[in-house]
Design a protein around this nucleic acid. Structure first.
Lengths: 337, 337
DNA sequence: CTTCAAATAGTGAACGATCACTATTTCTTG
DNA sequence: CAAGAAATAGTGATCGTTCACTATTTGAAG
C-alpha cells in the first residue's frame, strides 16, 4: 500500500536529489545547463536520473519560468492541405525550442477570430500563427500584448502581402502563354478572403494590362471545382478565351471539364493552368500545368517571423524559390483549325 | 515605474480576491463551479474579474490538479489530407474539455514512435491519439501508464482494424462491377504500413475469391500516382483486367493515365475506382468513381475512444455511414468492340 | 600555512492555482 | 431566543520547479 503511493507518482527533482545525495537545486542546475558541476556530482545525478527514469515536469517548470514554450497555429479547413505547412512550421518552432499546438476552426472569419482571442487569453501559448484569415485589427483586442500574433495570410486592407501570397509564378505563366501567341485570357479567382487569391487576381489584372492583352473577365470564385466549371459555362461563345488561369488545380479541373463539354480541345483550343500541383494533376488527361508550392517552406518562413517576434532568434529561412511553375500538357500554342 | 510592474503581470486570483473583498479561496470556488456563493459575493467577484480582465492561469491550475487537459494527435504527413480528421478529433476533444496539440513527424515509423514516447514522457499531455503508424507494442514502453495512447490505425499483428480501416465500400464496388459483368480484377494497394491499405487489400482478395472472380494480381504500392501508373504498365497484354481497384484517387489517376496510354477506353474497356473522393476527381475526364470518406467523423470517433479511456466519458459518435461509394463515369459495363 | 577569489553546492521563497481543513455566518426549529 | 445544522467563507499547505541568495569547498598565490 505504501508501495502504491511510491509508484503512482512520477519522481521529482527532490527524489533524484536525495538519491544522488545532493540538494534539489544542484539537480535543477544539472537539468538546465549541466555545467558548473563536479564530474563526480554529475555522474551521481546521471545515475539517479536514469535509475528513477526521471523526466522534468514541464508544467511545473512553465509555472516558475512563466514561459510555456508553446505556440499555436490557426489552420484553415477545407481549402487546401495545410498539413505540409503545419509540418514546416512545426519543425521551425522545434528548432527554436517551442512546441506547437494546431487549432482548426470551422466557420467564418469572426468565429475564428473569437476562438483565437480566447486562446490568446488563457496564457497557455506564447504566440499564435494564423494561417487562416482573421479579422483585421486583431492586435488591438489582445490582452496587453502578452501573446504575440502573426497573421501570415492577411493584412488590414487587402494589400501588403507576404510570401504566402506571392503571385510571381502567375506573371511567368501569362508571359509564357503570351509568347505562345495567346491574346485573350480569363481568370477564375479563389476566395478573396485569402491573401493568395487577392494577390493572384491582382497579378492577373496587372500583367494582362501591362502586356496589352485582352481579358475575358475575372470571376470571383471560392476555390471549388464548381466555380471553375460554372465560370467557363457562363462565357458567351464569342467571348471565349484561349487561356484560362485558374486559382488552383481544382478550379482548373472544373474549367477543363467545362471547356471539353463545350467542344474545345486542350491545349489545341485553350490552355489551362492551375496552382498547388495537386498530385492528381500530373496524371490528368491532359496533365495540368500548375505551380508547385513548397508548403513546408512557406510554413517554415511564416513561423520564423513568429519565433523572431517572441524570442528574437533568427532561424534559417527555407531555400528559395518557394514556388515553381511546372509546365505540362494543358498549355501550349493554339492549334489553328 | 511602479506602474510598470502592475501592468506587466497578469492579474492573479489574489488580486481579484482583494478587489472583491473576499479570500482567494472564494474566488477559486467561483472559478470552478460558481455555486455555493451568495449572490452578492458572486456579483462582487464578477465585477472584479471583469474589471481586471482576469483569466485563470491554466498552467498553475494544471500544476495543482495534476491534469493538463491536453491531448496530442500524431498526424501522418504527405499521404492524405489529415486536417479534416484533425478537425473532427479536435471538436470531440473540445466537447470533453480537452485541448489538442497536433504533432506531425516526418520519417519512418521508428522516428515517429520515438518522438511519441518523448512526448508521453514529459507529462504534458494526458493522452495521445496516433493517426499515423507507430511501432507495435508501444504500450510497454510507456512510463508507468500515465499517458494513454490510442493508436487508431494500427494493431499488433496487421489485423484487427477499426473504423479507420473499414473496407466495406470496396466489397460494394466489386459486387457492383461483377454485376456489370466484370470478371478480371486488379488491385493497386497503398502503403501496407497503413491499416487502411491492408484492409482494402484483404477485402479485395476475399471478395474476389468469394465471388469466384479472377484477379490479375495485387501490386503493393505507396499511395502515389506513379505506383498506379507503373502497376498498369507492368501488366502483360493478355493479363489485362477490365476492372482496376486503386487504393486511392491519386493511384487511380495514375492507373487511368496508363490505361489510356495503352489505348484503352474508360469505362468502355476498363473500369477504374479510387478512394477518398479527392475534389479533382469529380471533374476528371472521365469523372472518377470513388469513396467519399467522412474524415471529420473518423477523426471524431478515433478521439472518442481516447476520451473514454482517459475520462470515462462517452461522447456522441459521428452519424453513420462514414464512407459512401460515389458512382461516376469511370465505371460501367464493358463495351464489346 | 594563510588568505582570498573562484568554483561548487545549499537554503528558502516564489510562481498561481487547488485541496483539506477550520471558522464564521445564516437559517431552521423547538 | 438559544441551539444545532447547513450554507458560506477563510487559512495555510501543497503541486515541482527555478530564482535569488548564502554557504561551503577548492585551489592558487604569497
Amino acid at each position: 500500500m505504501t508501495e502504491r503511493s511510491t509508484e503512482s507518482r512520477r519522481p521529482t527533482i527532490k527524489q533524484v536529489a536525495s538519491l544522488a545525495g545532493v540538494s534539489h537545486q544542484t539537480v535543477s542546475r544539472y537539468l538546465r545547463s549541466r555545467s558548473g558541476l563536479k564530474p563526480a556530482t554529475l555522474a551521481r545525478i546521471d545515475a539517479a536520473v536514469s535509475e528513477l527514469n526521471y523526466r522534468p515536469n514541464l508544467v511545473a517548470r512553465s509555472m516558475r519560468t512563466r514561459r510555456t514554450g508553446r505556440l499555436a497555429i490557426l489552420l484553415p479547413t477545407m481549402v487546401f492541405n495545410p498539413s505540409r505547412m503545419l509540418h514546416g512550421a512545426t519543425e521551425a518552432a522545434h528548432e527554436a525550442g517551442f512546441t506547437v499546438e494546431a487549432i482548426s476552426v470551422i466557420g467564418d472569419t469572426e468565429t475564428r477570430t473569437e476562438r483565437m482571442l480566447e486562446i490568446a487569453g488563457t496564457g497557455q501559448v506564447e504566440g499564435i500563427l494564423a494561417l487562416a484569415p482573421v479579422s483585421p485589427g486583431i492586435e488591438d483586442h489582445l490582452p496587453q500584448g502578452e501573446t504575440i500574433v502573426v497573421a501570415a495570410d492577411f493584412d488590414d486592407q487587402m494589400r501588403g502581402i507576404g510570401e504566402l501570397a506571392d503571385a510571381a509564378p502567375l506573371v511567368e505563366i501569362i508571359e509564357r502563354l503570351a509568347a505562345f501567341g495567346h491574346r485573350r485570357f480569363f481568370h477564375v479567382a479563389g476566395n478573396l478572403q485569402f491573401a493568395s487569391a487577392r494577390a493572384r487576381k491582382a497579378a492577373y489584372l496587372e500583367t494582362v494590362e501591362r502586356l496589352g492583352l485582352e481579358s475575358a473577365g475575372v470571376v470571383d470564385g471560392d476555390w471549388s471545382g464548381r466555380s471553375g466549371y460554372d465560370a467557363v459555362h457562363s462565357l458567351a461563345d464569342e467571348a471565349m478565351p484561349t487561356a484560362v488561369i485558374a486559382a488552383n488545380d481544382v478550379v482548373a479541373a472544373g474549367a477543363i471539364r467545362a471547356l471539353i463539354e463545350r467542344g474545345l480541345d486542350i491545349p489545341g483550343d485553350a490552355s489551362v493552368t492551375g496552382w498547388d500541383n495537386n498530385e492528381v494533376c500530373e496524371y490528368l488527361p491532359p496533365s495540368l500545368t500548375s505551380v508547385e508550392v513548397n508548403l513546408e517552406g512557406l510554413g517554415r518562413n511564416a513561423m520564423l517571423s513568429l519565433v523572431k517576434a517572441i524570442s528574437g532568434r533568427e532561424l534559417e529561412p527555407a531555400p528559395r524559390p518557394l514556388q515553381r511553375v511546372i509546365w505540362r500538357e494543358s498549355t501550349g500554342p493554339t492549334t489553328p483549325r
